[in-house]
Design a protein around this nucleic acid. Structure first.
Lengths: 212, 212
DNA sequence: GCGTAACCCTACGCACGAGTAGGTATGCTC
DNA sequence: GAGCATACCTACTCGTGCGTAGGGTTACGC
């Protein structure tokens, strides 16, 4: 008998999720380096060796967090923006899903993302994810352009897509820092900037530097 | 007599700059945490206690780096974009100066910037700088709007400005990672996205979400 | 030429936190 | 109810790197 253990034994799959939840929370509050495995373990209501047994080293744990959150986000977006819709509709639904996701996982996503940019071991991981997004956006632009019988250099396409993705990430940061803000409205604002700007380009309007 | 010291004694002001140069270099290569004070000292051709004597702790040193680079950048921009020019001209010159600066300080600026976002002690510092930029951009938009007799809510203005600044930072990252790219061309591309998109807004064109 | 202040060094203390060794209890199978 | 795998723990080791103590040497004023 003796005193029953303060908390129950749980199957591995459950504990792993609890640990990941705790890890995301602590990493986002403290940053990768300042976060300690002890604090993560404590927050998960478990002892440190368990974390090592299930999720491996600190780096591996962080990567696991990145993967889980990244996959969730990608699924949210992909599920909303079906590829057979017209470009503006796709863009709109994708943006709405994206900002909705960020709004629902404010501290989790935003800070994880901010973290990963800085730390070299993970920056690559992130860059790959972003590159995929850029490619999708560039593809949408290209598609819309061809539909209008126009065409611009691939590099310009990529850079414009890059700028749009950057603007979106930036607004996501803003959203994460403004809990009172509405994700839907933010998506609308972004759609305005993106679609109007891109729309001009699509119609062949360009700005040229003055000769000075 | 004895062997003359391998390298000369130098006045404080000079050594401080050498240390800052080294610190920027090492911080940007390794990241804030992975950078060691020993490596910075060695790279500056000096011993560690000197660094502590002149620039203080690691955090203070990093802040000093941020300040120097940030001030340089702000001056480059402010010097180019005189406030009495028309809005499009100001925007163009500001962008050109900005990308020119990033191009000239690629590893220094970009990675310092990427670093500071993630580490909590410095994120605030950076956010302040960005907020100033956003305010300037928002002011330009507002000015241009009023000149056309139009007006939009301050919050929308701020968000659009935020998106533009985000897009610009994103392209700066891209530029820092593409050494072969031309800052001037990048500025032109950004100007296209920004001015065309903003121009639409200025003329009262807006996008509205479909009722679904 | 002598004090004093600025410049600079070698060598260490010490805390913090990642990762582990080795052992205990619980439940499941047959 | 014996055996065994799985869940879980306390209590350590040990490297790494920040920050400093304490002491030398060169220049400069007077």
């Amino acid at each position: 008998m003796s005193t029953p253990p303060a908390f129950k034994r749980l199957p591995r799959a459950v504990r792993e999720q609890q640990m990941l939840d705790a890890a995301v929370k602590v990493f986002s509050r403290r940053g990768f380096h300042a976060a300690s495995m002890d604090e993560i373990a404590e927050d998960a209501g478990i002892s440190k060796p368990m974390v090592y047994a299930y999720l491996g080293t600190k780096e591996e744990l962080f990567v696991a967090c990145l993967h889980r959150e990244g996959t969730r986000m990608m699924q949210a977006i992909a599920g909303a923006a079906a590829p057979d819709l017209p470009a503006d509709e796709r863009l709109w639904r994708g943006l709405r899903a994206f900002f909705g996701f960020v709004g629902a996982h404010r501290d989790g996503w935003a800070v994880l993302y901010r973290q990963a940019r800085g730390e070299q071991p993970f920056a690559g991981e992130l860059a790959t994810m972003r590159a995929r997004l850029v490619e999708v956006v560039a593809g949408m632009l290209d598609h819309a352009l061809r539909a209008e019988g126009r065409e611009i250099a691939a590099i310009d396409l990529e850079v414009v897509a890059y700028a749009l993705v950057g603007a979106t990430e930036s607004l996501a940061d803003w959203l994460a820092d403004h809990p009172e803000a509405d994700p839907e409205r933010t998506a609308t604002r972004m759609m305005n900037v993106a679609w109007l700007g891109a729309g001009q380009l699509l119609h062949g309007v360009t700005w040229r530097p003055p000769a000075d």
